Computed example of a mutant assay.
Amino acid sequence: MSTGTGLRNDLRSRNHPAFWAFAVHRVSGVLLTLFLPLHFWALGRALSGEAALDGFLRWTERPLVKFAETALVLLLAAHLGGGVRLLLLEFAAWRGWQQTLLALAAAFSVAAALAFGLNVV
């Protein structure tokens, strides 16, 4: 097997919906992990006193923070969908309509984020 053929096969596999589901699941997991220290810091504001918490809550009313909250909901929904997908791959045999389920999981993630965003703004 030549190196060129292996590279072409590798690039073709990256255009498969399952690869993108894998990538979204991994990236959402990393981004959620990076968010956790900020979340714990924000919770710590409540322990620093009422003034510190009120100042933080006023800061969260900014449009960019509201957008980031919506993005966070999208990340959570995408990560949940990816986790369910992995569980189904492990325990169920539904290979024939796997692409449809991937599309439904993506649609659910976007719908959850939009519903949250429209409710917040």
Results as ranks from 00 to 15, higher is better:
residue 114 L to D: 00
residue 5 T to L: 11
residue 48 S to Y: 09
residue 13 S to C: 06
residue 84 V to W: 07
residue 4 G to L: 10
residue 17 P to M: 08
residue 43 L to Y: 06
residue 40 F to N: 05
residue 117 G to R: 06
residue 66 K to P: 01
residue 36 L to F: 07
residue 85 R to T: 10
residue 84 V to H: 11
residue 19 F to R: 06
residue 58 R to S: 10
residue 6 G to S: 09
residue 81 G to M: 05
residue 29 G to Q: 08
residue 31 L to W: 09
residue 106 A to L: 11
residue 99 Q to W: 04
residue 33 T to W: 14
residue 1 M to F: 10
residue 102 L to K: 10
residue 10 D to A: 15
residue 44 G to L: 05
residue 6 G to H: 14
residue 43 L to P: 00
residue 79 H to A: 00
residue 22 F to P: 04
residue 111 A to L: 02
residue 33 T to H: 09
residue 115 A to D: 00
residue 65 V to R: 03
residue 37 P to V: 07
residue 60 T to G: 09
residue 58 R to I: 13
residue 9 N to M: 05
residue 9 N to W: 03
residue 53 L to R: 04
residue 21 A to M: 07
residue 63 P to R: 09
residue 45 R to Q: 07
residue 94 W to R: 11
residue 41 W to Q: 01
residue 104 L to C: 14
residue 51 A to N: 07
residue 42 A to W: 10
residue 114 L to W: 08
residue 97 W to Q: 06
residue 44 G to N: 03
residue 108 F to C: 04
residue 103 A to N: 03
residue 85 R to E: 11
residue 76 L to H: 01
residue 92 A to K: 10
residue 105 A to Q: 04
residue 92 A to C: 14
residue 119 N to V: 05
residue 67 F to G: 13
residue 35 F to Y: 08
residue 28 S to R: 09
residue 59 W to F: 11
residue 75 L to E: 01
residue 22 F to I: 02
residue 18 A to N: 11
residue 118 L to F: 08
residue 115 A to F: 12
residue 10 D to Q: 03
residue 104 L to A: 14
residue 17 P to W: 03
residue 54 D to Q: 05
residue 57 L to F: 09
residue 27 V to G: 00
residue 107 A to E: 02
residue 37 P to H: 05
residue 10 D to W: 06
residue 106 A to E: 03
residue 113 A to D: 01
residue 91 F to I: 01
residue 76 L to M: 11
residue 58 R to G: 05
residue 26 R to M: 08
residue 65 V to L: 10
residue 69 E to A: 09
residue 4 G to T: 15
residue 31 L to F: 03
residue 82 G to V: 03
residue 47 L to S: 12
residue 113 A to G: 00
residue 46 A to I: 07
residue 11 L to C: 03
residue 38 L to Q: 15
residue 113 A to Q: 01
residue 21 A to F: 01
residue 109 S to P: 02
residue 95 R to S: 11
residue 61 E to T: 10
residue 49 G to P: 13
residue 28 S to K: 06
residue 48 S to R: 10
residue 40 F to D: 06
residue 61 E to M: 04
residue 28 S to I: 06
residue 44 G to A: 00
residue 108 F to I: 01
residue 100 T to S: 01
residue 93 A to F: 05
residue 16 H to K: 07
residue 84 V to I: 07
residue 41 W to Y: 11
residue 102 L to D: 13
residue 22 F to R: 13
residue 27 V to L: 10
residue 68 A to R: 13
residue 71 A to C: 09
residue 25 H to P: 12
residue 32 L to I: 15
residue 28 S to A: 14
residue 29 G to C: 01
